[in-house]
Nucleic acid binder design. Structure first.
Length: 585
RNA sequence: CGGGGCGUUGCCUAGUGGCUAAGGCGCUUGCUUUGGGAGCAAGAAAUCGGAGGUUCGAGUCCUCUCGCCCCGACCA
């Protein structure tokens, strides 16, 4: 491709509002352009990178037996009503009616659609296992798109779906994805870690997320440096110490202006771990068959020295959604914000008690009366509720496996894998007849990779003060040919020869100054830069420099340029291959 | 959905009630230059996001509205 013909152009200045390096460079280099909030066009350069990522994904998915198909973005709402997600998913899914008033949705994922296909295709155990995948546009009306391509509303996702006879089959496909995903990220040269995750709205059981660790990430990842335990904070567990002793009698105590745990502990001169605090949330519960919504107050009770992980609370309460409760809602249930506890609260309140509280004795808790707390509250004696782990893990807490102190970091989720089980096959009647003649629900798995987000992460990982430096497997071109000589013939010949040899060349044939050409080459960041200048041409050489390295340019003789360049490209590719590590669960 | 910020030419910005809205980048033309975002000269390009209002006078003040960004809520 000639630079003079490239559709996009480079920008000297970072567009307003580009807060991350990677995003700023993707815009400046002309890879992407924003159309609206969370809506981006991929320009030719960006699309070339995306196509390379997609090719890697296709090869690896095909490699584990996947068959590519393509499902529609617009779905009739009926199938989403069958699984209940039409009702349980809020505004994140966009809905509309067609001309005759039928309910339609923009599919934000394709479990319903693929299950609809599968219930037609799969009728016998002989037709299992199966694995299909697609690269398709998703629309999710995220309330808050941000950070360029990291969190968008419209994006391309690779999603695959596995169908199996039994759990063992599912686990085999899950394992195959687990390893294939690492191969994909390794080939893209994006460092990732797999972490245990919540299954969220997918409704499955076992799930992992692939995280690219980055300070701009929005997920918090808990890791154990000693034993290797990793999990998203949403589900991360840790070892909780708790005191226990003889239960003492309940006692009301005046605690003026002690609406926070810190104030309370200071006032009473006790450790925060000897207190219990209550978090009030309104939970939305949806009847999955009728779609009827109800709101119920949920009280999460946690020890004063910890925080509630809302995701855990939501799961424990089996709520579809949570929001902070308003003061009047809390008071209506007989509790007092700031001095609240489930002791003496209304009957229809859902009480979820962290196991640390349930196991501790004689905690100080709110008296549900302004400026009063109760000493020596005990779960079971003074109040009841569902016991669950609802505590938020954090750095410094003890690993539940090996007791070493946990660490926490920020990450961006670039992929995920879920063992769905029969959540969709049962609700949609995707059944097969087994060898023994019985009808059984197909066991499913669901696996996603955000393609654009992967590119965004690569841009974040691979850049410097001059621009992008994507690895050769995902850069839009392999070689950037910068001609600084008047004699266009020699440059044209090199361009033609390299291209004919199958090398992807971006050829700067513009009438620009050397500075402009070099700056643009650095910004776009094609891995191999070949410079044609009078200096080296006199000696029959061209200069070859790697974008990623700080080493000086090497001289390549013109005579063997094509072969040498091919070798160089191949060795860069091989470097990435050699860094691949086989990983399995 | 709460809180905050910003909308001025293709891009980045200045302009803080008063003459014809200014500069840099980019763009066009000509000459010069040609190894790290060149120089000179001449140009084109803006209904100041939109609507309404206050005022003798509004890019500037007020109201509404749309869009974008950030924090939070939210989120596979």
């Amino acid at each position: 491709m000639r630079m003079s013909h490239v559709f996009s152009r480079t920008l000297r200045e970072v567009p307003a509002g580009a807060e991350s390096m990677g995003y700023g460079y993707l815009v400046r280099a002309g890879f992407i352009q924003q159309l609206g909030a969370g809506i981006f066009s991929l320009l030719p350069l960006g699309l070339r990178s995306v196509r390379k990522i997609e090719t890697i994904i296709r090869e690896e998915m095909d490699g584990i037996g996947g068959q590519e198909l393509l499902m529609p973005v617009v779905n009739p709402a009926d199938i989403w009503k069958e699984t209940g997600r039409y009702f349980s998913i809020d505004k994140e899914m966009s809905r509309f009616q067609d001309r005759v008033g039928r309910d339609m949705v923009l599919a934000m994922t394709h479990e319903e659609c693929v299950t609809d296909i599968a219930r037609f295709e799969i009728d016998s155990y002989k037709r299992l296992p199966q694995l299909v995948y697609q690269l398709q546009t998703k629309w999710r009306d995220d309330p808050r798109p941000r950070a360029g391509l990291i969190r968008v509303r419209e994006f391309t996702m690779k999603d695959s779906y596995s169908f199996d006879r039994d759990q063992a089959g599912l686990e085999k496909q899950y394992q195959a994805h687990f390893s294939a995903y690492f191969r994909i990220f390794d080939r893209c040269a994006l460092p990732t870690i797999a972490v245990g995750s919540d299954s969220g709205m997918m409704g499955g059981k076992v799930a992992h997320e692939y995280m690219y660790l980055s300070p701009i990430g929005e997920d918090t990842i808990i890791t154990c440096p000693s034993c290797g335990y990793t999990a998203n904070r949403q589900v991360a567990v840790f070892k909780k110490e708790h005191n226990s002793g003889e239960m003492l009698p309940l006692e009301e105590k005046l605690t003026p202006n002690c609406a926070s745990i810190e104030d309370l502990a200071n006032f009473l001169s006790i450790d925060q771990r000897n207190t219990a605090k209550a978090l009030f949330m309104m939970g939305t519960f949806v009847d999955s068959t009728t779609g009827e919504e109800m709101q119920k107050l949920i009280v999460g009770v946690i020890r004063g020295d910890m925080e509630v992980e809302e995701n855990k609370l939501q799961n424990a309460a089996k709520a579809n959604a949570l929001r902070p409760a308003h003061t009047d809602e809390i008071k209506a249930a007989g509790m007092e914000p700031g001095f609240g506890s489930p002791i003496g609260c209304a009957q229809d309140v859902i009480v979820i008690v962290d196991d640390s509280v349930a196991k501790s004795t004689n905690l100080v808790a709110g008296a549900n009366k302004t400026d009063y707390h109760l000493l020596n509250t005990n779960f079971g004696r003074d109040y009841t509720g569902t016991v669950a782990d609802i505590a938020s893990a954090a750095a410094g807490y003890a690993c539940s496996v090996c007791s070493a102190p946990l660490q926490q970091s920020k990450g961006i989720e670039v992929g995920n894998i879920f063992q769905l089980g029969t959540r969709y096959s049962e609700s949609m009647g995707c059944m097969y007849q087994d060898e023994d003649g019985t009808r059984k629900p197909v066991i499913m798995g669901s696996y996603g990779i955000g393609v654009g987000r992967l590119l965004a992460c690569l841009a974040e990982q691979y850049n410097d003060e001059s621009g992008l430096k994507l690895p050769i497997t995902t850069a839009p071109y392999q070689v950037h040919l910068v001609s600084l000589v008047k004699d266009v013939e020699i440059a044209e010949k090199i361009y033609t020869d390299l291209t004919a040899a199958g090398i992807e060349v971006l050829y700067d044939d513009r009438k620009e100054s050397a500075g402009v050409k070099f700056a643009d080459a650095d910004l776009i960041g094609v891995p191999v830069r070949i410079t044609l200048g009078n200096r080296s041409l006199k000696e029959g050489n061209v200069e070859v420099k790697l974008r990623g390295s700080s080493e000086d340019a090497q001289a390549f003789p013109l005579a063997s340029l094509v072969a040498d360049t091919k070798d160089l490209v191949a060795s860069l590719m091989a470097d990435i291959r050699s860094n691949m590590v086989h990983r399995q669960l």
